[in-house]
Write a protein that binds this DNA or RNA. Structure first.
Lengths: 159, 159
DNA sequence: CGCTTGCCTGGAGCGCACTCCAAGGCCATA
DNA sequence: TATGGCCTTGGAGTGCGCTCCAGGCAAGCG
């Protein structure tokens, strides 16, 4: 099964296999649950190419189709895309995300594996934040050096 | 001119065009200032291929050579590699780092451009840290979900 | 002397994550 | 009927950041 937004959208829905993101940056305008690919492009910032590619490689499970064969994304699909976007920001390889997607599709028996994967990702994220903070310190030192030096020779520069 | 470690290595050196990193993770063992490429590989974690490639694309200025034509890296070169490593962690494209390297080579007249580049990088880093912290929050929520759910069905799983 | 080790070069190749192409279906509006 | 817009597909192409290859040189050692 897939992650859902059931708990935030329909509080009375079954929340057996649920853990989703309450706040949304691009709020989904309508109460509808069927979005065309171009709507999803607008919400997600991904291209239609990428969305279809995600589906081909198994990063998204099969998307509903209209009677003419066009994709109709659900809110659940958008939630999943949110998660994928977050994981992408961590630098997680797409192959690992596909692995996680497979675990989700395999059902409840993979809870422990999923958790381990997420915890390992969490450690990576903490490491990366630390590295970025180190980098920030270096940047600040250099910026203040150039700031001082720049001010010292401002006249020369602006002449 | 290049960034130097003058202020930390020789406090009495000219510090006209200097702003470098005091602390080092892989302290350079000897007081020497001439390292072979394989030593630099050991210090930096980069491959020799990558080091030569960095030089080819202008990310490092010309490296000293021994009488037989082999590269001899200086402490200054290692400092520069440290910075490059940090900038790489921010996701800065190599082309932008090359641009910065060119500014450094062009001399003091580029102080302002360098500072602008660093400040823009700094903003990027802050953004990325924020994104990672958002992601961390999502991960924590999911982990605790799987933690609870996992504990609830531990017996089932371990049977 | 031969052999190994370490380094040199220009250029080709690779893996990842997209990104695009060509050809075509369906439907609405003019 | 035709024109445009939006969507479909499999497969090919792209850009980035390396990564490796073939062939060769110089030094050190038994």
């Amino acid at each position: 099964m897939m992650q859902t937004a059931a708990e935030t959208i329909a509080p009375n829905a079954t929340r057996t296999d649920t853990c989703s993101a309450p706040p949304r940056r691009h709020p989904r305008p309508e109460g509808q649950d069927h979005y065309t690919i171009s709507e999803v492009v607008a919400f997600s910032g991904l291209t239609a190419h990428t969305l279809r590619w995600y589906e081909r490689i198994g990063l998204m499970s099969h998307i509903d189709r209209s009677h003419t064969g066009q994709r109709r994304y659900s809110n659940r699909d958008l939630d999943w895309l949110d998660l994928v976007g977050k994981l992408r920001l961590t630098g997680m390889p797409v192959a690992d995300m596909v692995r996680y997607a497979e675990l989700v599709r395999e059902g409840e028996s993979t809870y422990l594996d999923r958790r381990e994967l997420l915890e390992s990702t969490r450690r990576d994220v903490l490491t990366r934040i630390g590295e970025l903070q180190d980098t920030l310190a270096v940047l600040d030192r250099k910026i203040s050096f150039y700031g001082d030096a720049g001010r010292a020779r401002e006249g020369e520069r602006t002449r």
